[in-house]
Amino acid sequence: MTTVTVSLPDKQYDVLIERGLLDQTGQLVAKQWSPRKIALVSDDNVAPLYQAQVKDVLTAAGFEVHCYVFAAGEASKSLTVLANLARQMAADAFNRDDGVIALGGGVTGDLAGLLAATYMRGIAFIQMPTSLLAQVDSSVGGKTAVDLDSIKNIIGAFYEPDLVIIDPNTLQTLTQRDLVEGYGEIVKTAALEGGEFWQLIETINAPADIMTHAPELSARSIHYKASVVMADETESGSRQLLNFGHTIGHAVEALADGALRHGEAVSIGTVAIMTVFENADLAEKGITAQLRDRFSAVGLPVTDPLLTSPKVLTKVKNDKKNRHGHLNLVYLTAIGKPAIKSVPSDDIASFLQLTTHD
């Protein structure tokens, strides 16, 4: 078993990675929590696959498990669904000594995490990510949130889990598109770190290679993210590096209105932002082609017609990470060498119009 420890000023927790861990959930949670009620939260895609299995092993370990299911999809990241889940927990008499487990992908982790953070002002929380995107990114770092209208993740909290349990075997039930989507975040992270991680990425040339190397890809991604989070838990400094590819990516994802997955938008956004910086002679020549090649190798999109829309620039200018009239754009001077350029909001359109597409 691979263990990555996240040590923060007020909390320490482990991320456990090994094939077959779902069957060990009962004993792993029992080491962390005393007997209590557990709200096991999943969407209606994951629940039929794994919820009964996890409930059985938790029950055998002495926990009282209540299974809650919501409709799969980004639309469920809402205050309405959050309230419905809280209402069910209240009806089942959950109290501050109980806990929430998120069993599913990124939407489940965000929603159940905010549920744990806000129910009775905060109860215990464990992440069990089942998608590649969640296993390599969103399950670690404590970000929980729901959307409001068309604004992603605008209502949320930093709320770290007590434990993260990752079983790469759950990836076998993903569609190829869902598997590959998560790889978008992996390439982003490997490009930030460079070194052996990027060398591993250079050997991934098909979706099957992702499955083969899934445990190592998760471990390396989480190790890098954990190191950044430990240095800057609330995103006031170096944690901003994790936004690489997201500034334009989030804008395109929002405008796509569900037609693009998050990891696909990150792929597009990463290539777009590096095109800008390479054309501005602020990045090593050829770096954009390297990134484009690694995304394309597994079938991720690297451009989109929406990049030519003026609405992209409007979305970027109004990004929620805009601070004091400036937007910090993350880029690479070379693989493994990230940098941040602060651009005044009023200048962002002219800066990005250097080119955001081929």
Rank of each mutant, 00 (worst) to 15 (best):
Asn153Met: 13
Leu332Trp: 08
Glu264Ile: 08
Gly258Leu: 12
Gly105Trp: 00
Asp137Ile: 11
Ile210Asn: 07
Arg177Tyr: 09
Val316Ser: 08
Ser342Tyr: 00
Thr275Tyr: 01
Thr130Arg: 01
His324Asn: 15
Leu8Pro: 00
Ala124Thr: 10
Trp198His: 07
Leu174Ile: 01
Thr108Asn: 11
Ser78Val: 03
Thr212Cys: 14
Met230Asn: 05
His262Phe: 09
Lys341Ile: 06
Phe63Tyr: 04
Gln53Asn: 13
Gly26Thr: 00
Ile287Val: 13
Ala283Ile: 02
Lys320Phe: 11
Ile287Asn: 00
Ile155Ser: 13
Ser238Tyr: 02
Ala61Thr: 06
Val316Glu: 03
Gln53Leu: 12
Val302Lys: 00
Asn169Ile: 00
Gly156Ile: 09
Ala219Phe: 06
Leu192Val: 05
Ala93Trp: 11
Ile165Ser: 11
Leu148Glu: 05
Pro48Ser: 12
Thr175Leu: 05
Met211Leu: 15
Thr356Gln: 12
His66Arg: 14
Ala52Thr: 09
Ile186Gly: 06
Ala75Asp: 15
Ile222Pro: 05
His324Arg: 13
Met1Thr: 11
Phe158Ala: 07
Arg121Gly: 09
Arg294Val: 01
Asp97Ser: 06
Val266Pro: 01
Leu163Asp: 03
Met89Gln: 09
Asn243Ala: 03
Met274Phe: 06
Gly26Tyr: 09
Ser221Phe: 01
Leu85Tyr: 00
Thr108Tyr: 12
Leu307Ala: 10
Ala71Gly: 06
Lys188Leu: 04
Leu8Thr: 12
Ser309Gly: 11
Thr189Asn: 13
Leu132Ser: 01
Ser138Ala: 15
Asn328His: 08
Ala206Cys: 04
Ala117Asp: 04
Ala75Glu: 10
Ala190Glu: 13
Arg239Asn: 04
Asn45Pro: 01
His262Arg: 00
Asn95His: 13
Gln127Ile: 08
Gln172Trp: 00
Ser7Asp: 09
Ala297Tyr: 03
Val46Arg: 03
Asp147Ala: 09
Leu332Asn: 02
